[in-house]
């Protein structure tokens, strides 16, 4: 039951949307799939006077060039899943979309951009987007600008959008990297405790240049370059326990919530990293 005198806007163009958001500042927010914003209003955790609905903005594009794939703000996980297989690294997004918590209904309703904008540490999309080096396309009163995902996620539940700006799309590269995704959660209904997105660019199959981005283990995704763990041939040179120790050291301030304490997340970070790598290897 929403307690405030909320007004719903469905602007027909981006300028109008940005103007509304700019005019109302903290008292306004964008509603996309609704899966996060609406219950937070219902629970009285957020109080707003205005919501700006994306539905009439035509942001449902899901289109590609030979370098990247652009995913509009209204594209749901189900849209991502029902599209033809994404090429190259972008496939990571499809893999992750298939495992979103909340069942098919949430996959029908939730959007990639919505999840990114919410920036919940315990979720899939931030880590995946950072792993891919996604470009985040914002639109605001001063027009559009683009930020790399690594700069977009500023803190837990905080993104680098300015007053009046909304995320209109993300684009992800379709480079022919091998990818591997591993998500660890406690039970079907649990949000991720730790995720790892491995991106392996070496066409010869070594780990040279490989990165693994950890999600859900800290306030913002953590992109790790595996170089310190590799030998001259680009192979993992250290035993698992050492990998885990190294990874744990990269997580100085682990995320902590009622589902799992920080030290647990730190402990399993290395495990999910290794498992994502393994999946990427299997993706040869």
């Amino acid at each position: 039951m929403i307690r405030t005198a909320l007004r719903h806007h469905a602007p027909g163009d981006l300028e109008e949307a940005a103007a509304l958001l700019a005019a109302h500042g903290e008292r306004a927010a964008v509603v996309g799939g609704g899966t996060v914003l609406v219950p937070s209003l219902t629970r009285g955790e957020r109080d707003l006077d205005h919501v700006v609905d994306l539905r009439r903005l035509g942001l449902d594009e899901l289109s590609g060039t030979d370098q990247e794939l652009r995913i509009g703000a209204s594209v749901s996980y189900a849209d991502v899943l029902s599209a033809p297989p994404f090429p190259g690294a972008a496939q990571l997004l499809q893999v992750a979309a298939g495992g979103i918590t909340g069942g098919p209904q949430i996959r029908n309703q939730g959007t990639v951009c919505g999840s990114a904008s919410y920036a919940n540490p315990s979720s899939d999309m931030p880590g995946v987007l950072v792993a891919l080096g996604a470009q985040m396309h914002l639109h605001g009163p001063e027009g559009g600008r683009t930020l790399p995902a690594g700069e977009f996620f500023v803190d837990a539940f905080r993104v680098a959008a300015r007053r009046g700006e909304l995320l209109v799309a993300v684009s992800v590269p379709t480079r022919p990297d091998r990818i591997g995704y591993y998500k660890f959660k406690l039970a079907e209904g649990s949000w991720p405790i730790a995720t790892a997105s491995a991106v392996l660019p070496d066409p010869d199959g070594s780990l040279t240049g490989a990165t693994v981005t950890l999600g859900a283990v800290s306030a913002v995704p953590l992109r790790l370059d595996l170089a310190p763990l590799l030998d001259g041939n680009g192979d993992l040179a250290v035993p698992a326990a050492e990998v885990d120790g190294w990874v744990a050291a990269q997580v100085p301030e682990p995320w902590d919530d009622e589902l799992a304490p920080g030290d647990y997340r730190r402990t399993v970070a290395g495990v999910v990293l290794r498992r994502a790598l393994q999946r990427a290897e299997e993706n040869r």
Binding site: L186, E188, S190, L259
Partner: peptide, 28 residues
């Protein structure tokens, strides 16, 4: 395996939604 009503040090229930109080779902 999963269900638990967790209290915080402030004496308040933390497991106050079905996202934080995990009941089994079919795949579990």
């Amino acid at each position: 395996l999963w269900e638990e009503s967790v209290y915080g040090a402030d004496g308040r229930l933390r497991s106050d939604s079905l996202k934080r109080y995990l009941v089994p779902r079919a795949p579990d």
